[in-house]
């Protein structure tokens, strides 16, 4: 069936979203920086290397356990820059607000943004506010862009993963996606889960200080760990092998996933990262991560292999194997 309209799937971060980018956007904006398809662009301006990234936040509900749309918007862009191996410095913030939005809520959101920026050590230096008629937007949308500098000698990109690299995951998966979902109308769950939204730049800083030679960094947001690993396998044309048992999922998060028929590998994270590190440096990187509160549950979940380039294979709990494909469209709650 031809898709002549934009569907929610086009924004899911999975295959359908990727085909929109590949078929429509890349040909139109064609340039070598964009076609690297990393979390942010890396630019060389008169010898200074910069990372530049942008992201829009439309989360519903805007307040959720563990955070709100404000700190999410700051942390998300900070992380995109950090995943380029850069030190995030400056952010812009654009607000699109629906007419009638409560002033008190706006104040809470802006305060969260300010606190999150302080914590991450970045400054919000420019911004814009637009108000649209009631119904033309849902409550509030936020766009943030950011820039940071890439230190000398740091070269981090999804395309640089190499066979033999160990894959380190900084902690439990699916916390953010499941928390937001549990708040949605019609699905209400009462569960001890909260979003993991956090700025990862200080953690990345420690990691790169311990080992400047980290090959790839990615925060597995929309589409989850499964989709991100596929992106890296594709970008680097290597194979990826992960072990199901090693991937941490909190009990309550696993519970919600079971109830809704979700695979936690495809659920969004907002405060986790994947690092691809040569095996001789892996233990060192892992140990500095575990010393950081945001990486205390970090663990090695698999490795990069020469076989099956472009594919992710998982060893299952019973010793079987399966392919972990990229997410297609948004996962929908199912009963079958």
């Amino acid at each position: 069936m031809k898709k002549d309209k934009i569907l929610l799937d086009h924004g899911s971060g999975g295959k359908i979203a990727n085909s929109l980018i590949a078929d429509l956007m890349l040909p139109l904006f064609d340039n070598p920086v964009l076609s690297r398809m990393d979390d942010g662009a890396t630019l060389d301006i008169n010898g200074t290397r910069l990372a530049f990234s942008t992201d829009s936040y439309v989360v519903d509900p805007i307040f959720f356990p563990g955070g709100n749309i404000g700190d999410l918007a700051v942390n998300g862009t900070v992380n995109d820059i950090a995943m380029c191996g850069a030190i995030p410095l400056y952010l812009s913030a654009g607000l699109i607000i629906e007419e009638g939005f409560p002033m008190t809520d706006l104040e809470i959101i802006l305060r969260s943004m300010s606190e999150a920026a302080k914590k991450a050590g970045v400054t919000i230096v420019t911004g814009d506010t637009k108000v649209v008629p009631k119904g033309a937007a849902d409550k509030i949308f936020i766009n943030t862009s950011g820039i940071g500098t890439i230190p000398k000698g740091i070269h981090v990109s999804g395309s640089l993963a190499r066979p033999g690299d160990q894959i380190i995951l900084s902690g439990s998966i699916a916390d953010h996606g499941v928390t937001v979902l549990a708040q949605r109308e019609g699905l209400t769950f009462d569960a001890p889960v909260e979003s993991d939204t956090a700025a990862l730049n200080h953690l990345v800083d420690r990691m790169l200080s311990a080992c400047p030679d980290i090959h790839a960094l990615r925060d597995p947001t929309r589409g989850g760990v499964g989709t991100t690993l596929n992106e890296i396998a594709n970008a680097s044309q290597t194979g990826i092998r992960i072990v199901e048992e090693k991937i941490p999922v909190k009990k309550a998060v696993a519970g919600i996933c079971e109830l809704l028929g979700f695979d936690p590998l495809y659920v969004a994270n907002e405060g986790k990262l994947l690092a691809f590190v040569e095996s001789r440096h892996a233990e060192r990187v892992l140990s500095v991560m575990q010393d950081d509160p945001l990486g205390e549950n970090a663990c090695i979940i698999g490795e990069v292999v020469e076989n099956h380039p472009g594919k992710v294979v998982m060893e299952t709990r019973i010793g079987g194997e399966r392919i972990v494909d990229m997410l297609t469209g948004e996962q929908l709650p199912r009963i079958c």
């Binding site: 060893e315 019973i318 010793g319 399966r322």
Partner: peptide
């Protein structure tokens, strides 16, 4: 069966 890789064993 697919998720657990049962065919492969």
């Amino acid at each position: 069966i697919f998720r657990n890789g049962i065919r492969s064993v």
